[in-house]
Nucleic acid binder design. Sequence first.
DNA 1: CAAATTTTTGACCGATTGGACAAACGTTAG
DNA 2: CTAACGTTTGTCCAATCGGTCAAAAATTTG
Lengths: 211, 211
Amino acid sequence: MNIGTEAPRRTRIQQEKRELILEAALEVFSTHGFRGSTIDQIAEAAGMSKPNLLYYFRRKEDIHETLMERLLETWLAPLRELDDIGDPMTELRSYIRRKLEMARDFPRESRLFANEILQGAPRIMPLLAGELKTLVDEKAAVIKGWMRAGKIARTDPWHLIFSIWATTQHYADFDVQVRAVLGPNRGGDGRFEDAARFLEQLFLDGLKPKG
Amino acid sequence: MNIGTEAPRRTRIQQEKRELILEAALEVFSTHGFRGSTIDQIAEAAGMSKPNLLYYFRRKEDIHETLMERLLETWLAPLRELDDIGDPMTELRSYIRRKLEMARDFPRESRLFANEILQGAPRIMPLLAGELKTLVDEKAAVIKGWMRAGKIARTDPWHLIFSIWATTQHYADFDVQVRAVLGPNRGGDGRFEDAARFLEQLFLDGLKPKG
DNA sequence: CAAATTTTTGACCGATTGGACAAACGTTAG
DNA sequence: CTAACGTTTGTCCAATCGGTCAAAAATTTG
């Protein structure tokens, strides 16, 4: 009994089945959004009956909520790691690389997040204006310090962070379009390395010709 | 009779009501996606009854299809305008500016498109691999010419186009997040001008400090 | 073993979904 | 005015939705 949000005590089966459900729900929610997904779809993807699924998560929203909570943890980890200790340009470069790796390795998580934001972030708005804003403001201050020290060019730190998010997550969220445009030759596995090379050059030197 | 896809003959009322429906559907589809939207929602937003709406568009899909067809026309217009005649750096700069203006002035269209791509582009996949790929390949060749002529730095033209799409559309698709992070002070109407300034600098010079 | 507990399932519920249809209502041309 | 045509609506339908419930099946505990 007492499986819902309150009781942390879980049997072995409960832990396993909940993971199975969350895995299936990630697949379904990330491609159809919350309202576009059905419990039946998730149950089928998890290989169990609908009532059985509802035994582990009482409501459809509970699954989505659990998924979003976990997501935000791992999703902001790369930004948290952005530190004041190393060389600024190196720090930024490895932040971009980490974000691009996440787009490659966790595209469903990226799309789940994108779906939520696209639809107005009805379920995580407080987190955006709270925890997220605090973290970004903090890191923007770090970047501003680098600018004052002359380590990187003076520009808007917030929009710099946005541009890193946008360019990297694009390869997860718009993957279908990227592969369609690149075609069968260049749209293969190498596309992430091409993207990494391009982004490094863009954020380092821009497009102005050398000389 | 014969209002569907076949008969182009339309009365004055039909033209007006169809526009009314498409306007309402754009609002609904862009925030909930196709499967997450209901005919009732669209009908209510258009100020008419559901059967009345179905008199003008026989199926829910027909509305979405009409909307997507129109969208792609206007959505690719800025890229089509990218021309070989002017100064390369100026051309790219004004392309970025136009795309950012579209994110500002037509955010619903941007989100409608993003929703479709996020969900695997089930309805426009042929267009992506066909018309879109052709256009991008064509413009990539133009950009490559500029690189060979030493007018802009050598890099990957396809990923350059992706990065312009990603950074500009971000301000429409992730608008909620952008405003939440910027806060009430900097998240106002001025955010698009800040973004324009930042993107111009990024694509021109990158982040490397001057000197 | 047997009792207690946890897990699974089939049947079922009211609400909502996309859509059909005929009747009522407006509009327009002769 | 009136007949023809275009528009609008109330009613209805089968399918699907999220979710309940009691009973069966499996597992754990003593």
